[in-house]
Each structure stands twice: as C-alpha cells, then as structure tokens.
Amino acid sequence: MLTDSELQGLARTVADLPPDQERAVANAVADIRAERARLEEERLGDLRSMSDLQVAVLMDVQNLRREAALTLLREAGFVRGAALERAYREGYERGAFDAHTGTGPRPALPDEDDPDYVAARGYDLADLVKGS
C-alpha cells in the first residue's frame, strides 16, 4: 500500500507523461484489471464446480478463519433458508410462466402462505437440501 506522499508522487509522474504514454499507462491498468477480473471469474467457476465435500476439505486445508470460511462457502454457492426459498419461489414463478400457453390471462400464482404452495415448497425444498 502506498503512503499519501508516494501516491501523490505517482500521480505527478502520470500527470507529467506525454499523452501517448499516459494512454499507454491507462491501457496497461485496464488490461491488468481485466486480467484480475478474468482470474477471479475462473476461481469462482472452479470453486462452484467442486462438490460440497471438496469445498469442506479446501476449507480445512486452508485453515480459514470464520469470516473467510463463510465467504468461501458463499462463493462456492452454498445457500440456506431465505436464499433457497427465494430461489425456489423464482423457479416456481418461472415454471408457471413457461407453462402458460399464452391464450387468455395467465392464472394468478398462489400466495407464499397458500397451503398448497407451502406443502409443495416444503417437499421440494427438503429434496433439494438432501441432494446437495
């Protein structure tokens, strides 16, 4: 990390560059940021392709602190409670939308506390949790 005076010196250096070199610096910074973003996407893709057991072993091997372990779990795609229910509701609504033939008005979806919806959600979510 640069100190304030080092940062000011770097800014002066960049500001004093001829326009073509200033553009070259800006392009180099953009390329570095793009490469970092690509590597982060690759890391997340690799992490999300792991099984639950592989992620748990990775956490153990890295001996992560609690906050870092929770971050790793979120990045790996682990979901609980509200996030899983929200995903289920979105899938349920999308399924109803896709099943609609397009003739006439689309039927209203049951409320989240509708007994039939609650019963189906509990059954489906239980299966989803067992499968992960």
Results as ranks from 00 to 15, higher is better:
H100F: 12
D46P: 00
R94F: 06
R65D: 07
Y88M: 05
A99K: 15
Q54C: 01
M59D: 00
R86E: 14
T103E: 12
D124H: 07
A99I: 05
G91T: 02
A82F: 13
V61I: 11
Q54H: 02
G104Y: 08
A87Q: 11
A68I: 00
E112K: 05
R74S: 15
R48F: 09
M59V: 02
R65M: 01
V79I: 15
A126L: 03
D52L: 10
T71K: 06
P115W: 10
L47V: 05
H100A: 10
E93K: 07
F97E: 13
D46E: 09
Y117I: 06
L128K: 09
L73C: 12
L47G: 07
S49G: 12
T101H: 11
R80L: 13
V79L: 11
L58C: 09
L58A: 13
V55G: 14
R65S: 01
Q54D: 13
R80W: 10
D113I: 02
E112C: 02
Y88N: 01
D111H: 02
L109N: 13
L73M: 11
E67Q: 03
Y92R: 13
L109W: 12
A69C: 00
A99G: 15
R48M: 15
G122V: 01
D111A: 09
Y92W: 12
D113E: 11
A83E: 15
G91K: 07
P105A: 10
A82V: 08
L128I: 12
Q54I: 01
E75N: 04
E90N: 14
L58G: 06
R43E: 13
V118D: 11
D113A: 09
A87H: 09
D127T: 04
V57L: 02
A76C: 09
A126P: 08
L125S: 00
D46Q: 08
P110L: 08
P107K: 07
L73K: 12
R66P: 00
G77M: 13
N63V: 06
L47R: 10
R106N: 11
E75K: 11
L53K: 12
M50P: 04
L58T: 08
V79K: 14
T103F: 07
F78C: 04
D98M: 06
D113L: 02
A99F: 08
G91Q: 09
D127H: 10
D113Q: 10
F97A: 11
